[in-house]
Design a protein around this nucleic acid. Sequence first.
DNA 1: CTGAATCCCTAGCGATACTG
DNA 2: CAGTATCGCTAGGGATTCAG
Lengths: 130, 130
Amino acid sequence: MATLTAAQRRQRDRQAYDAFLAACPARKVLDRISDKWVTLVLAALGDGPKRYSDLSRIIAGASQKMLTQTLRSLERDGLVGRTVTTAVPVRVDYELTELGHSLHAVVRQLKDWAESHIEEIEQARAAYDA
Amino acid sequence: MATLTAAQRRQRDRQAYDAFLAACPARKVLDRISDKWVTLVLAALGDGPKRYSDLSRIIAGASQKMLTQTLRSLERDGLVGRTVTTAVPVRVDYELTELGHSLHAVVRQLKDWAESHIEEIEQARAAYDA
DNA sequence: CTGAATCCCTAGCGATACTG
DNA sequence: CAGTATCGCTAGGGATTCAG
């Protein structure tokens, strides 16, 4: 094997690293929840099914594009269910699946951690900035 | 109050939404963990202190810039501690603080969830794509 | 060894307009 | 009502270079 330049080595490491990530389950979930819209939709659906328009209203900051995109990916992953009621104005309902609920439970723990430690973080920031 | 155009209404909603987010502890933690490098560093430090060069090797895919940037933000938030040993080549050690460990514990739950449900997600994806 | 500063490019997202 | 399609911007992050 020939000697590699630093750049080539970095490139190779990055390949190996990416491969490792692809095989790592934790990474896959991270991909899911690291999307802020995913978490927000999950939270919004946490207390029951919602219509598309409901979600759009609750998560006011999400563009149509992001909302639809997020719902599609969650549906694909089996985290939310989608029900279309063919009527004169079409009606679409979304709800967490069993799998979705179980993830929601974990995310809620994260939320709980946040609520109980956010003050410490802010203190640390203030101290650091000073 | 004058009548608003649709664009103006969206803008206003977005403002209100952002304000709500800023006050929401869950959003702040989401900001932290939604950064993939944060989670990886957290994981890497989960089993003991590491030198800068160790982290750089373990998280091979991270550029110097991202690694340093991530470590700084974690330090600022009081999640990791930084120890500089003034020597001829400078040596810097990083370790999780108590606060960092408690967040790590929660993130680990997420990881556990992933490992036990990733198969279902993949099945759902396969089914959806078909 | 550890880190700061710069350049630069792509992917993600918002805004808008159109369809069933 | 519930999307889809397209355009354009900007912010994240990689590569490179300089410094303590």
